[in-house]
Design a protein around this nucleic acid. Sequence first.
DNA 1: CGAGCGCTTGATTGAGTTCAAAAATCGTGG
DNA 2: CCACGATTTTTGAACTCAATCAAGCGCTCG
Lengths: 189, 189
Amino acid sequence: MATTIETFKASGKFSPELIDELKKVVKQVSIKKGTVLQRTGDSSLSTYLVINGLLKSYTIDEKGKEHIFMFASEKWVIGDIDAHSENSTAQLFIEAIEDSEIEIIDPNFLKLFKQFPQPVLYNELERLLKRTSVLQKRILMLMSHSAKERYDEFLKMYPELVQRVPQKLIASYLGITPQTLSVIRGTIY
Amino acid sequence: MATTIETFKASGKFSPELIDELKKVVKQVSIKKGTVLQRTGDSSLSTYLVINGLLKSYTIDEKGKEHIFMFASEKWVIGDIDAHSENSTAQLFIEAIEDSEIEIIDPNFLKLFKQFPQPVLYNELERLLKRTSVLQKRILMLMSHSAKERYDEFLKMYPELVQRVPQKLIASYLGITPQTLSVIRGTIY
DNA sequence: CGAGCGCTTGATTGAGTTCAAAAATCGTGG
DNA sequence: CCACGATTTTTGAACTCAATCAAGCGCTCG
């Protein structure tokens, strides 16, 4: 499979200087099954491209239970979606399920292109990253939290919406019935 | 709030010709509460930027039950994440919860930038779109399908992984316990 | 003003969890 | 290459959270 650097060289569109810069932010390594590439709370959030092998990303909840977020086999990319935003720390563990060959793509990878004449796509990308990050959180919530916990989180995250949206829609967003939401709200006070 | 076009003009980086092109793919409209902008199965998948008001996106399952995927209030963008890939049809309904002012961004919006000198970000964006699209499907699965249905879907979607990944990890990915997965597998044959 | 929609409350049911223990499989060292 | 310990999968019983069914109340908006 073509690596990132090879793809860039082959395109013929990049100066040797840029290629050199790229080499600094993209590293190819071989890792053993069980290797943990990233832990919850880590602050350097690389992205990982699987050349061959198999990785998993997951959280561990308060009860110590593991929740798989994603698998990534050949050609797939895995990483915290927040990877490129500043000041964020990892929500996820990333670990090899099989011996694997991977590319480690530094969080600064994208920044190399920020300077180019057309910033639009960069903005577009950041916007999509933000949306995607919300989805990531949502999945983790759905998988690892009870109805009540999800509601509490919703209150914290979108306090304005609670005023504007009918409860039955909030229930639907949380993946529960309006009745259950009503019971939950009843138990709070 | 600054609209897309205003932002582009203000940046001063775009030719009048490009601005004209943009005007063709970005339209501002006012809609009434209850207006349905997109239905499941629609093939022209626009993206919607909320200037003011409130939109929801949702699916309706086989039993007629509505599942909210996202809310979008001021400054938020909503749309099928597949929006920019070819041949895809809408998984989601998009509808106004309040009277709203929105921008309708044509699926061809991004294509305007495909031609520019640095295709990298475009590739990056497409890659992220693909990943995000997977997350969207995952959320819909978690919210509207039983454990057994989710497992069947997993088998269809990732047949190779079933061979390579221990069942307890698949269970975790599906949001169920290994015991439940074992029971499900038992009932299949 | 009244019909319908949204929210609440309660009783019943059921899918999936938890706890526990046995059976099967994996993998590692001798 | 085999054997033993560890991990994974299966099976079963008891339990729990949330869904379903059903009925009543209170708005609001038409």
